Amino acid sequence: MVTVNLNSAPNAEDRVSIFGVPFSKMNMQQTVNHLTDRILSRQVTQVITANPIMVMSALESPEYMAMMKRAELVVPDGTGVVWAAKHVGNPVAERVPGFELLHHLLRVGESQGWKVYLLGSSPEIVRETYDRLRAQFPKVSFVGYRDGFFGASEDAEVIRAIRETNPDLLFVARGADTQEPWIARYKQELNVPLIMGVGGSFDVISGKTKRAPAAFQKLHLEWFYRLLKEPTRYKRMLALPKFAVKVLRDKENVQKG
């Protein structure tokens, strides 16, 4: 049985600010324990699995930065974030990839009988993701799914459909530029204990794309593997060297803001 600890929320010393974005310093197991507590106590929690590209986006957009600061938990998904925190002498415990966090939470969900809703990606991909996760985690109740192709005029309908299923976890795959602001805007209205943006995780789970081979993961080169597979991402990937240069040049200011 999982024990609820209402005082498990990370405090200031459990976080490191990277150019204003407050990253959790917890390792994967601590993160899972913390989120389990919040789910069991029905506290609405937005989890952002952030990387250097998202940090750079936040620096360019005050609205995006404000949204990230309002999130209940920001975890270091990108290896660049882990490197930056170590470089400034305030390291995080480890990288906490969103793909793995999703699976860890579902494993806990099997013992808790949690209900899960999937939102995002294409109709074919979200359906396949739903079917595969239901087979992999038979004790989790997957209560619904919907693709991510809807506009603002349909938000109320989408929210109503999710609320009717009363899920414990909501995974959203709509792309970082869309999913995080959408979650932030509607998280209180959705009233789901855990809402997490999962980016391309549905693509991998459904089998549409493959996760980077173990060798790439071990060398922290998953981003490079994705670039090889999707060359059109090169413009977005340009933020990575810009982030590294900024950390090196502005080391004294990385933790300010």
Rank of each mutant, 00 (worst) to 15 (best):
V192I: 09
Y234V: 15
V74A: 02
M1P: 14
M237R: 09
S111K: 15
N253E: 14
L73Y: 01
R185W: 05
V55T: 10
N166A: 13
V204W: 02
V140C: 10
R163S: 07
Y234K: 13
P181R: 02
F99M: 14
N7E: 15
S122A: 14
M196W: 04
V88W: 08
W223V: 07
M56Q: 12
T165F: 07
N11K: 10
S121L: 02
V4L: 09
P213A: 02
D147S: 07
V96P: 00
I183P: 00
G207Q: 01
I53Y: 06
G109T: 08
M56I: 11
L194T: 08
K115S: 14
V4W: 09
V245N: 11
V88K: 07
P97E: 08
D250S: 15
R132W: 08
V21K: 00
L170R: 01
V247H: 02
G98D: 07
Y234L: 14
P138N: 04
R146S: 10
R233Y: 08
H34I: 08
S122V: 12
M54T: 09
F224M: 13
I195N: 03
E180S: 09
L133N: 01
P167M: 01
E100T: 12
G98L: 11
M196S: 05
L59P: 09
N27R: 06
Q112P: 13
G20F: 10
F171A: 05
E124N: 13
G78K: 02
A239H: 06
V198C: 03
A239F: 04
H220Q: 15
W83L: 10
Q30I: 06
D250H: 14
E124R: 11
V126T: 08
W182E: 00
P123I: 02
N253H: 13
Y234N: 12
M196K: 03
F216I: 03
V82E: 04
W114S: 05
A66Y: 12
R132G: 05
S122I: 07
E13D: 15
P138R: 06
E154H: 12
K210I: 12
N166L: 09
V192Y: 00
G207W: 01
R249F: 13
S201E: 10
M68Q: 10
R15P: 05
W223T: 05
I18C: 09
E60W: 06
P22D: 04
D77F: 01
G175H: 00
M54E: 08
P167E: 06
M67G: 07
A58S: 13
P10G: 01
V126P: 00
E222F: 01
L228I: 09
Y234G: 09
R226E: 04
F224T: 10
S61H: 08
M26A: 12
I183L: 07
T31K: 01
